[in-house]
Nucleic acid binder design. Structure first.
Lengths: 150, 150
DNA sequence: TTTTTAGTTCTGCAAGTGGAGAACTAAAAA
DNA sequence: TTTTTAGTTCTCCACTTGCAGAACTAAAAA
């Protein structure tokens, strides 16, 4: 199912995704579904390709489904589910991530409001950071929205 | 040293920074140094303001120093160190973060190279994502570099 | 020389995470 | 009705994290 090189890539891309917050098993599953040539894999194919237990496979799959990073389809007359990478969701999730940064800037605004004017240099640093953040968030969202408009 | 509102903010900004990868204690220390009116605090002031043990305080401070998120100064004739938030480093560390994303795009390039042409739709999704990522990274670095050139 | 200061490092524990394997379940097939 | 399929959930354990408190250390003060 995988070439030797692809097996290596599943691991190394897996590590990168671990660093991005996925658990080892979820990272491997997502990595596998990105790398494998087949357009979708069954539960057991995933389990066997990664040498995972059923519980680890089940939990990893359900976690990735909850994040909307993978999806599944069924085939007529079969009960099995076939999982695939929802890579095309990247715009949606990037956008969500950037919007989430507004929590950070709102927090900084609160902090600015509640600092004395004793140390104006630092107050100005906070304001500058926040101005940039707000600018950066809206620019990033523009970049996403204007990317190959479809 | 802190108003009641500021104490609250230390906690809530602390939580946000925990979500960004800092340990609870490091997050509180960094939060405190961002919120407190004094321009710098000693080891014991930090320890007492946050009700931390000496070890937790020491480890949190040294971790933040290693990340370059805080710094310290000394006062003539005193051995104590006074710690402050290095908020002005944000440009440097944002830039480093974005440059780090090139590892991700390099990985995706490797993946593309090692997939068959069986599923061109997915191959094109990978290419599209990577094109965007490369564009986004370079644009972001431009935004940082051009921000209020000083 | 002894004591104090300003921390650092070590020891031990409580809590959380991640995954294996077994037990379980609901629907479909035999 | 029994068995198989396609998972899910439960139990247990190994490993990691984060912190407190105690022991330690090196420089400075007394």
């Amino acid at each position: 199912m995988l070439t030797d090189k692809q097996k290596e890539l599943v691991e190394s891309f897996g590590v990168i995704q671990e660093q991005m917050g996925l658990s080892p098993a979820s990272a491997r599953v997502n990595s596998l579904l990105t790398i494998v040539d087949s357009s979708e894999l069954s539960f057991d194919e995933i389990k066997d390709a990664l040498n995972l237990s059923k519980s680890a496979t089940s939990n990893a799959i359900n976690y990735l489904l909850s994040l909307n990073r993978i999806g599944y389809k069924t085939k007529p007359g079969e009960r099995k589910r076939y999982f695939y990478s929802k890579l095309d969701q990247w715009k949606v999730s990037f956008k969500k991530d950037f919007l989430g940064l507004y929590n950070y800037t709102a927090m900084i605004d609160e902090i600015i409001k509640n600092r004395s004017n004793e140390n104006q240099d630092f107050n100005n640093e906070l304001k500058d950071l926040n101005e940039f953040m707000n600018y950066f968030i809206s620019e990033s969202i523009n970049l996403i929205d204007n990317w190959k408009k479809k």
